[in-house]
């Protein structure tokens, strides 16, 4: 790890002041991804601003019946929070599908949104990577791209966003609260992460010197008919090849409303409102689920080693929607997919 300066922020305003003074400074909270990237020389901050002691670690009910989750709430605390378990079980399930308990104990809510791709070429400073060094080229497009994206890719980058938690947050219409030099603003979750386009170095639409302070969830829905299915190369502690968050509101056997988002397939959590619209008003059966999957995957594009993901996603979507419709969500401990 290279040398860097260290400073501890006293409050949010202090943190924003510190980051604005140094264009190569970074915030650090849990550090689970940043420290790793620094050890590999991928991230080279001149200064770390420690925000881990800021008072952003509470989960509070909001007046509209939703929740406001402080940006520093550890992933494990969020997953096991009684209000999250009872009102947003899809979020609990997605969080518990990711990383390990040690890492979830460290990783912050805000940091989870800001983790970088696990593309091996992004980590390998000996290879070109447009995300790490803009304009240097993409090693993955014609390289070992088994884990890479099938949706929303560009000629510059086919990396995926690695988070499980964010897939559930996308499905649940979360909003991201940020503070910057110009004050506070709120970003819809769908607008927070970016597709790579020709600027894959930018993962998110955070502006310079902004800090995430909270994630807000609207009043709970989808408490009964939901599931988060994560498909990966080993049963635990691995990033998703494909993951699916599905949530339904049923009236009899008919789908009144639906949420459908995927992880492991794109540069951002991939929610498709068109596929959700195709589910609405339809009978909750295999034909409906397959049609929605086909619609979601209509523009999917495989590369040399990851084309299998398209069929995996198609079957996974149908399976997860079936689990949701049956009210039998995927268990993250019992690995059997039913």
């Amino acid at each position: 790890m290279i040398n860097f300066q260290y400073v501890r922020a006293n409050d949010v305003a202090d943190a924003v002041r510190h980051i604005a003074t140094d264009p190569t400074a970074k915030f650090i909270a849990g550090g689970t991804n940043l420290i790793d990237l620094m050890k590999d020389d991928v991230e080279r901050p001149s200064r770390l601003i420690d925000i881990s002691r800021l008072p952003l670690n509470t989960v509070e009910e909001t007046t509209d019946g939703g929740l406001r989750i402080g940006a520093l709430v550890p992933n494990s605390d969020l997953a096991y929070h009684p209000l999250v378990q009872s009102r947003y079980p899809l979020l609990t399930s997605a969080i518990l599908a990711g990383a390990s308990q040690q890492l979830r104990n460290m990783a912050s809510t805000g940091g989870n949104l800001l983790q970088r791709t696990r593309c091996a070429y992004f980590y390998d400073t000996a290879t070109p990577c447009n995300k790490r060094t803009p304009g240097s080229g993409c090693s993955a497009i014609n390289g070992l791209n088994r884990i890479h994206a099938i949706l929303g890719t560009s000629e510059a980058c086919i990396a995926t966003h690695p988070s499980d938690m964010c897939v559930a947050l996308a499905a649940l219409d979360a909003t991201v609260h940020v503070t910057g030099p110009d004050g506070e603003r709120t970003i819809m979750f769908a607008d927070f992460h970016r597709l790579p386009g020709d600027t894959p170095q930018r993962d998110t639409n955070l502006r310079p010197n902004e800090i995430i302070t909270a994630i807000a969830l609207p009043a709970p829905r989808f408490v009964t008919n939901y599931s988060y299915l994560k498909i990966r190369d080993r049963l635990s502690y691995a990033f998703a090849l494909v993951s699916i968050a599905a949530a339904l509101e049923l009236e009899g056997g008919t789908i009144a409303d639906a949420r459908l988002a995927l992880g492991g397939v794109a540069h951002k959590p991939w929610r498709d409102t068109g596929a959700e619209a195709a589910l609405r008003g339809q009978p909750a059966n295999q034909a409906t689920f397959t049609r929605a999957a086909d619609l979601l995957l209509r523009d999917a594009k495989g590369f040399e080693h990851n084309a299998f993901k398209i069929d995996l996603a198609r079957r996974g979507i149908a399976r997860t929607l079936t689990q949701a419709a049956n009210g039998t969500p995927q268990s993250q401990a019992d690995k059997k997919v039913r």
Binding site: N3, F4, Q5, R44, R132, T133, Q201, L206, E210, I211
Partner: peptide
């Protein structure tokens, strides 16, 4: 957090210890 490039610092630049 909002930094746009991961390798903003030139590789030879040294930070005062």
């Amino acid at each position: 957090m909002a930094r746009t490039s991961t390798a903003a610092r030139p590789s030879k630049q040294t930070i005062p210890t």
